[in-house]
Amino acid sequence: MTVGLPHYLVLAAMLFAAGIITVLTRRHAIGILMGIELMLNAANLNLVAFNRFSAVGKLDGQVFALFVIVIAAAEAAVALAIFLNFYNNFATVDVDQGNELKG
């Protein structure tokens, strides 16, 4: 059986599910960030696969994926800066501990 678009889509769905489970089960802020990276990668795989299989002669999917990669890098930089601040204030990166404004 040849590998077609559905194969890539199923793989991307699995990656996305793994990302969601990571985000939901981890309390470590950086672990959550990794889950988000996994989800973004899953989306990227979808974009590139659709581009390869159903957009003949166009590269829009790849351009989108490139933007996603770049913006993910930017997001990681800001997120880490925030985590470092968080760590300075709470001496932990456990997101459940950041509840100082809780009523």
């Binding site: 699995m14 793994a18 990302g19 990794m34 996994l38």
Partner: peptide, 8 residues
């Protein structure tokens, strides 16, 4: 997939 499951 091995990597992704490993992350989880």
């Amino acid at each position: 997939l091995v990597g992704a499951i490993g992350v989880v």
